[in-house]
Simulated scan of single mutants.
Amino acid sequence: MSQMRRYRLYRKRSGASRRRPRGIFDLCLAVAILGMLALVVGRVDRAAVRREAGSVIVNDGDTITLNGQRIRLLGIDAPEYNQTCMADDGSYRCGRQAREALVKLIAGRVVACEGGKRDRYDRLLAICKIGTLDLNRAMVEQGWAVAYGDYGDAQRTAKARQAGIWAGTFERPRDWRASRNIRDEPAPAGFLDWLWNLFDFSGVAL
């Protein structure tokens, strides 16, 4: 093999070896860019305003399930399902009564919800209505939820009327959860929830 031929063969092999790492780098860079784009698209999709409407399952006083999606009523905080409060005649299950109040408000009708953010449990934070009836506001006005960033005027009205939990004493739901190291999660939607909504046991005391 001539000197010139050996030199050309050496150049060809060394060039291929140099191109191989660059090709791997380009591939990794392309994968990284695609991954970042997917992440951005996912975040934009999660932040987009969502509108849902249909029949619901009431999980507790501030959480419903609509079209298979868990929704937290924005701007309010109702007593937890197992929470108790105090009234003149002793303690009572205010968490269950809060749920019952929301069931009565909905009364089997179609609910429309709109929201663009989610909480840390991936629940959509939304304002939910039946026609012009704002369910979030109504729960605060009836005294079965406290204002949580919104509806301060509705809470003042409920407090002045001693409506719902304001008729006695209670722990703020947030404090009640914190004192028991309980996650801010509603009771699971199950068979009993389905029966409740199917037969509309809104007049039954829990």
Results as ranks from 00 to 15, higher is better:
residue 26 D to T: 08
residue 56 V to T: 05
residue 196 W to P: 01
residue 29 L to C: 09
residue 137 R to H: 08
residue 8 R to D: 09
residue 203 G to C: 02
residue 21 P to F: 12
residue 85 C to H: 07
residue 192 L to Q: 12
residue 152 G to I: 01
residue 37 L to F: 15
residue 11 R to G: 00
residue 105 L to S: 11
residue 172 R to K: 13
residue 100 E to A: 07
residue 175 D to E: 14
residue 158 A to S: 10
residue 72 R to N: 04
residue 184 D to I: 10
residue 40 V to W: 11
residue 138 A to V: 07
residue 14 S to F: 07
residue 121 Y to T: 01
residue 141 E to Y: 12
residue 78 A to Y: 04
residue 16 A to G: 08
residue 13 R to V: 01
residue 45 D to N: 15
residue 204 V to D: 02
residue 183 R to V: 00
residue 72 R to F: 05
residue 40 V to K: 14
residue 88 D to L: 09
residue 12 K to I: 00
residue 51 R to M: 05
residue 185 E to F: 11
residue 113 C to V: 03
residue 24 I to A: 12
residue 116 G to S: 10
residue 120 R to W: 01
residue 130 I to R: 05
residue 4 M to I: 12
residue 150 D to Q: 10
residue 65 T to Y: 01
residue 150 D to V: 00
residue 24 I to F: 08
residue 18 R to Y: 00
residue 44 V to M: 06
residue 48 A to D: 00
residue 190 G to W: 06
residue 122 D to W: 10
residue 77 D to C: 10
residue 173 P to R: 14
residue 150 D to E: 02
residue 2 S to G: 07
residue 4 M to G: 08
residue 31 V to M: 06
residue 172 R to E: 04
residue 52 E to D: 05
residue 204 V to Q: 14
residue 185 E to N: 14
residue 88 D to H: 15
residue 134 D to F: 07
residue 54 G to C: 02
residue 93 R to P: 12
residue 169 T to C: 10
residue 107 A to M: 07
residue 138 A to M: 12
residue 169 T to V: 08
residue 196 W to F: 09
residue 48 A to F: 03
residue 198 L to K: 12
residue 56 V to N: 03
residue 77 D to Q: 09
residue 41 V to F: 13
residue 175 D to F: 04
residue 117 K to L: 06
residue 101 A to E: 11
residue 29 L to Q: 12
residue 59 N to D: 10
residue 1 M to R: 15
residue 132 T to L: 13
residue 39 L to E: 00
residue 101 A to Y: 03
residue 151 Y to E: 02
residue 62 D to F: 04
residue 94 C to G: 08
residue 4 M to D: 13
residue 77 D to W: 03
residue 81 Y to F: 12
residue 47 A to G: 04
